[in-house]
Amino acid sequence: MSTATLAPAKPAKPTRSYALRDSLTMLRRNIKHMQRYPSMTISILVMPLLMLLLFVYVFGGALGAGIGAGGDRGDYINYLVPGIILMAATSGAVATAVSVCTDMTEGIVNRFRTMSISRGSILTGHVMGSVLQVAAVLVLVTGVSLAIGFRPDASVVEWAAAAGLLLFLAFGMAWLSAAMGMGAKTVESASNAPLPLTFLPFLGSAVVPPESMPTALRWFAEYQPFTPINETLRGLLLGTDIGNAGWIALAWCTALAALGYFWSRAVFNREVTR
């Protein structure tokens, strides 16, 4: 069509230049939501904490003996905590899926879509919010773990590496759950969609060594994404052997983030141009 080129010559502001500013605006909006309605943040905090206390104080004695070499509850805390921290890093997924879905089903997103703003900012705001939320949960869960007897021997660099890996995982999970939230028709199904993902650490090396599992499950536990991430964390915090788990963990996190990102974009664009 030729009228587009004949249209008044006022150059359209490139939306891209506002991508960061708009994303930060959306982030502030999401943080306000979290502050005003902390129940979601509390529930994603309570889950890993309950798991921690349950496994340490209820099962800890028996499991400590089970993981070998005359272990006790204290040894088991050290084995368990990296797994619990990993769970905490995945726990934000449900909250993200729910808040993205709520946004999509309400009129406000249609308003955003008629405004001259960076379109992606709606999602990047959610993803950044989710990562910050998870970071806060991680700090609290780690704090409680230290308080009940977690004794890591990590250096500052190792702590930083562990934090980086966890935040990278949270970032990938946030993109994935944003896609799930957008694809979901109702808030209920949005909250269910990421549940299998948050359950996966249990089927890995989070609470017990995979060697103690039946063959099929052990095979699954060894090759699923969370086991190498878990082993890397354990290695960074407690000095166990990491081997090539570190690279595999990074590869999985990259894959999760890439999958989530492209899936989100595809769903978002489909929803936009119905």
Partner: peptide
């Protein structure tokens, strides 16, 4: 004067 399809951002 702006096409809603080709020049959506100006329209917005």
């Amino acid at each position: 004067g702006h096409d809603v399809k080709a020049d959506a951002d100006s329209v917005r």
